[in-house]
């Protein structure tokens, strides 16, 4: 499996820390409650490993928002929550003004917007740390098991998942979220180069 040097790994954690901090603050403003987060744990894993962590083996279903980013490195980013918590998150976002029916109708759009905000917060930290812009696509909502979600890119795929266990913990609700980035081999090399450039910039 792909490995970074200790220094590269530290740099990546540092950049993610900035992004995740911004994302947690954004999430807290969305749900109007305290959102705590763990220090991001970065692991390069296969899709199968990540899907297993997400409970794919037990058929656990996930609500996910996917967004493509292209630029210094290309990736497909995912924000994932347990499917059964999705309506609760949307209710926190829009308040009590909608009926359950209206809420259900808006669930996918609202989750897409939440994904858009959170994933852009994470990726914004990368762009701002390097001064190199990352172009994001429109967010797309998916529901299914971890296998379904992470297998969506399908095809012959030689990449890994940069699994970022963020653990968005919406304090009073026990809702935990995950963020993951799919990177193919070219993207991994670009990411490594990105980190090296970032480190070189620090020592100038």
């Amino acid at each position: 499996m792909f490995k970074l040097s200790a220094l590269q790994h530290d740099a990546l954690v540092e950049i993610f820390n900035l992004g995740v901090g911004q994302a947690a603050a954004a999430m807290s403003r969305i749900v109007k409650e305290e959102v705590t987060m763990s220090v991001p744990l970065i692991a390069f894993q296969s899709r199968a490993q990540v899907a297993q962590t997400l409970g794919s083996g037990e058929g656990r279903r996930i609500s996910a928002v996917a967004q493509q980013f292209v630029g210094a490195f290309n990736t497909e980013a995912f924000l994932m929550f347990p499917e059964e918590k999705s309506l609760e998150i949307v209710r926190l976002m829009v308040g009590q003004s909608l009926t359950m029916e209206e809420l259900g109708e808006m669930e996918q759009e609202a989750m897409s917007e939440i994904g858009n905000i959170i994933l852009n917060s994470c990726m914004g930290a990368f762009a701002n740390a390097s001064g190199r812009e990352l172009q994001g696509s429109l967010p797309i909502y998916h529901a299914g098991t971890g296998d379904d979600i992470l297998g969506l890119s399908g095809k012959e795929w030689d990449g890994v998942v940069l699994a970022l266990k963020i653990d968005f913990n919406i304090e009073k609700r026990h809702i935990h979220g995950h963020v993951a980035f799919l990177l193919d081999m070219t993207a991994l090399q670009d990411l490594q180069q990105y980190v090296d450039d970032y480190l070189a910039g620090l020592t100038k």
Partner: peptide, 17 residues
């Protein structure tokens, strides 16, 4: 078209660029 209107970009894209 509307030179007098104030325009504000309200976006999730928080990049400096």
């Amino acid at each position: 078209l509307r030179p007098a209107a104030r325009i504000v970009l309200l976006t999730a894209n928080v990049q400096d660029a």
